[in-house]
Design a protein around this nucleic acid. Structure first.
Length: 493
RNA sequence: GCGCCGGUAGCUCAAUUGGCAGAGCAUUUGACUCUUAAUCAACAGGUUCCGGGUUCAAGUCCCGGCCGGCGCACCA
């Protein structure tokens, strides 16, 4: 990167000094030495009595949120990343008072002044000198109602953040959450890694990929739908505990719970099985939420929820049987499962075997009622091509999904380590693909080769970070916890 | 992709049965030495999302399109 781009480099070339300094980007300071945040002032001088002056001079900076002028006095509300403080300007004490009184809402300001409490009791910085750091040429919405238009809020989050407290809170909580998740993974001995986003073969999950193109290689690539196989290859390579917190991309519909790019935590631990991973998962999720909110108890969309461990474990067949009122399992005749699906308005596809039918029946009958955190276990092998078989029932796998507030939050299993079985599973996926399943997995020869070098017993986990962020932010729409959600581009003018 | 709902001044919202397109805030101008969504006065601000149609007359009714919200489908 060039640090001497033409923009911001004063007085160069054939332009005279005076000309340069009247160009628009020369008229504001290039820095502002800043000594205090609003919140520090509020806390540090809370003891001042009305009318009292502290004698302390501070330099604060931020954005003008409100402005009240009264003849030879002016009051402004200044906000920075920590909070707000009132600015108190007087014609007799403030430089350029007339200009100060004509500031626009939204202007960025740097202020020097004394910390005082006004006669009416508001802690303030009594402005002696000030400088406008940036002009707001657009306003930030109604100063009472803010911005409510969803299109404007999502397309111009920078304005939404200034206008709406809820937006600031939601995105701050998301940031605190990802920090807590990272720190807990590090503390548990996991190494953070980064694996390719551009993939020649999209794999590791059942989803339609985005396609892109590399010019020099003359080859199409797919944006990753999951980092799963790369991470297991790192375990083969000797990284016994790895995790990646990153973006994955799935070419699917957008809804209040789905963004085409979303953030997942994927984590693998050698020598663990799925039971170990469930224990880790509930502690990780409950712990990270407590790190953000101070408690595992939260209110989501008006309903109480407690994420404290341990979470109940119940098998998919058991739970589904309860809900449909008769015993069902992967051994139930497919025709009966299809009937039960029909009764719930779910038409079975021709390529669905009994395992897929059972899983669909679970989703149609039980999933939405799983409000308190619950591990659903023992998924059919048919829908789990990367998971290890359950020794007691080879048509099932040592897999679990965690459900909270009626939604899937996490997915994990004992990893399939047998290259021969893995090749057969991929082959079965290929058959499903040929039969019309657009989301069937593809054969990944490099991954099979990796398994031939030897993957120790390993358990893996994937957590939908956006979904978890929705819980801690009490957000009904995933877009509320994504700074810049995917939107349909507006037509070019 | 389908269905329902919405889009009016920079922002938040009104506009009766189809009958002159309005208010608050912001902006501009003026008054005001303790305000805090300050207040008061004045000026200005419009392709009613876009394109057709019906009608003497359309923000309003009809058709098509664009963008969004919710639901369904898909999915985590």
């Amino acid at each position: 990167m060039s640090s001497t781009s033409s923009r911001g480099s004063p007085c160069t070339g054939c332009v005279s000094f005076m000309d340069a300094c009247t160009r628009p980007d020369m008229t504001t300071p290039h820095s502002f030495p800043h000594s205090a945040y609003c919140a520090q002032i509020s806390e540090g001088y809370a003891h001042l009595a009305p009318g009292e002056e502290s004698g302390a001079i501070v330099a604060v900076a931020g954005r003008v949120m409100l402005l009240r002028t009264q003849g030879k006095l002016a009051f402004a509300t200044l906000r920075d990343s920590s909070g707000e403080i009132q600015l108190f300007a007087l014609a007799s004490a403030t430089e350029q008072f007339e200009d100060f009184a004509r500031l626009h809402l939204g202007d960025w300001l740097g202020v020097h002044g004394e910390v005082v409490r006004t006669k009416r009791g508001e802690l303030s910085v009594k402005v002696s000198s000030w400088v406008r750091l940036a002009e707001a040429q657009r306003n930030f919405g109604d100063k009472w109602a803010g911005i409510t238009d969803y299109d404007l809020r999502y397309r111009h989050r920078e304005a939404d953040l200034w206008a709406n407290e809820d937006t600031r809170r939601s995105l701050a909580r998301r940031s605190a959450l990802t920090r807590a998740v990272r720190e807990r993974c590090w503390a548990a001995g996991f190494t953070e890694v980064e694996t390719p986003i551009l993939n020649a073969v999209p794999t590791g999950a059942a989803a339609k990929p985005f396609v892109t193109h590399h010019e020099a290689l003359g080859a199409d690539f797919y944006l990753r739908i999951a980092p799963e196989l790369w991470l297991k290859r790192l375990v083969v390579g000797g990284f016994e505990r790895v995790f990646e917190l990153g973006r994955v991309f799935r070419n699917e519909g957008i809804s209040p719970r789905h963004n085409p790019e979303f953030t997942s935590l994927e984590l693998y631990a050698a020598y663990w099985n799925y039971q170990d991973m469930m224990a880790f998962t509930e502690e990780l999720v409950a712990g990270a939420v407590a790190d953000v909110l101070g408690t595992t108890r939260l209110s989501y969309q008006g309903r109480e929820l407690d994420l404290a461990a341990p979470w109940p474990r119940v098998s998919m067949a058991e739970l589904t049987s309860q809900k449909v009122g008769e015993a069902v399992s992967v051994a139930t005749p497919r025709a009966r499962l299809v009937e039960l699906l029909d009764e719930r308005g779910v038409p079975a596809h021709a390529h669905w075997g009994p395992g897929r039918c059972l899983a669909e029946l679970f989703e149609a009958s039980a999933e939405a009622d799983l409000w308190e955190p619950t591990f659903v276990t023992r998924y059919p092998v048919e829908i789990s091509p990367l998971a290890r078989r359950d020794p007691s029932e080879p048509e099932l796998t040592e897999r679990f999904e965690a459900f909270v507030a009626g939604r899937e939050l996490a997915n994990g299993f004992s990893e399939l380590t047998d290259p021969v079985d893995q090749r057969e599973r991929f082959a079965e996926q290929a058959r499903l693909g040929a039969a019309g399943d657009e989301e069937a997995m593809r054969v990944d020869e490099d991954f099979i080769k990796a398994l031939e070098w030897g993957l120790p017993p390993t358990a893996g986990l994937g957590v939908g970070i956006d979904r978890l962020a929705m819980l801690v932010a009490d957000a009904a729409n995933i877009r509320e916890v994504i700074a810049f959600p995917t939107l349909k581009p507006l037509a070019e003018e």
